[in-house]
Design a protein around this nucleic acid. Sequence first.
DNA 1: GCTTGACCCTCACGCCACGTCAGGGGCCAA
DNA 2: TTGGCCCCTGACGTGGCGTGAGGGTCAAGC
Lengths: 258, 258
Amino acid sequence: MTDAMPSPLTVGQVAEQFAVTVRTLHHYDDLGLLTPSERTRGGYRSYSRADLDRLSTIVVYRRLGFSLEQIAALLAGPDDLIEHLHRQRANVTSQLGQLRALVTAIDNALEAAMSKRPATRAELQELFGDGFDEAHEREAEERWGDTPAWTQTRSRTASYTPADWTAIRAEADAVHAAFVAAYQSGAAADSPAAREAARAHRAHLHERFYDVDAQLHRGLGEMYVADPRFAATYDALAPGLAVYVRDAINAHADHQGE
Amino acid sequence: MTDAMPSPLTVGQVAEQFAVTVRTLHHYDDLGLLTPSERTRGGYRSYSRADLDRLSTIVVYRRLGFSLEQIAALLAGPDDLIEHLHRQRANVTSQLGQLRALVTAIDNALEAAMSKRPATRAELQELFGDGFDEAHEREAEERWGDTPAWTQTRSRTASYTPADWTAIRAEADAVHAAFVAAYQSGAAADSPAAREAARAHRAHLHERFYDVDAQLHRGLGEMYVADPRFAATYDALAPGLAVYVRDAINAHADHQGE
DNA sequence: GCTTGACCCTCACGCCACGTCAGGGGCCAA
DNA sequence: TTGGCCCCTGACGTGGCGTGAGGGTCAAGC
């Protein structure tokens, strides 16, 4: 937690500090993208402070989705970063469009493959597992039965078809996956990736169950940490995830409020 | 344009009919995913009607983003297609979230890298090339000067910064890329991919320049075909694209109207 | 029957950013 | 000196094909 590290570092130390693997550093060395400025007598790579600066630039560019070749060009020439960023944005936006079309296609396939009657309890249970049994539902009723959110939830979910429920389940899984991906990539709880996951989380609840404003969203985040059953659900996906989710929700809300 | 093809087909014929490459068919054969039921004396692959049916299933699954391994499983076992579709949807949705976060990150980088003064004419010209000179602008003024769309465009674009303009350029490029990708993939003008591109096109204009309803959007589509300069711009990206864009816009509008 | 040209065959390497062994050596404390 | 942890350099694997190289096959026209 302190940066009182001696200046020349070994691969392992550098790897840990930048949350990359040793293999990645070897790879960058092979490509000539980041060659440590010294070697020890024994042949160990020895990274200077300047090497670390360069690496941090590389890591940032990588997070922006640049290829290693592009990064090398950016680091070498006085090329225009802004122009590269625009090209990159266009690429990513184009990919976004393709993916959105893909989701539409999948949804169409799903609709074609499924019947449209409202879902039975058995189907719900199969979809959501132990989390969706009668006891769970009765408790929710007792706990929130007189809140507007619960009323809204009851009226909206009553008409959902099996297709809707499986879509909802898929969305929920995707939201969880996004949180886990951000968390395990080492991104901070207020990083774009984490805030994006929080945004998706709120949008999911808002669209499928009940109106969620920033205030209520923060409350949910706190509950995920405070209520051991919610905490256990998240921590089962990745230890420490519940706290991360709460922090990401708060970061998202802060960011929106600006 | 007729399907009066003899039933046993060679790789080249099959490849053309399904818009895949010969190498792809070889690859599927290598994997055992699609082994043609016969060979000629000379060793040529010979695809029967049943082989073609199987291939069409494979192609559809590929468009839905399944891996070849998953497709093999789906074709082999009586596995649940619906479950696979949900998993696939969750994956794609997760990727969507990641990409959205990436766009945010890039935008932040761009904002950090650029100043915020309004853009100069020289900058606009550099960005948009020949399409943005004084003559062009005067003509536009004469042609549309008294329409509400043009008034709105003037008032909104006046405050755009260089960062805004480069983002707009990137978006426009992305929209074009989406049209070209859909067009060249062989997808019909009313396919999800093409309609998604049309949606992005309308959203782009709507957000950046002036309010575009379905009616106005259709009008623009017709103009892209009718006005030779617009048609030339699109056809330069890919011959026949102008007509495709118009048809995609109409398909999108029809779909929305349902 | 022979030539021609379009089509087909089977290897086999290349791509991208590493992951994952395997086999061997260095470093440091007890 | 021993042990345990770290480091080194190859070298192959991943997915879904693209792209040759080097050579055989087929149908049509002469």
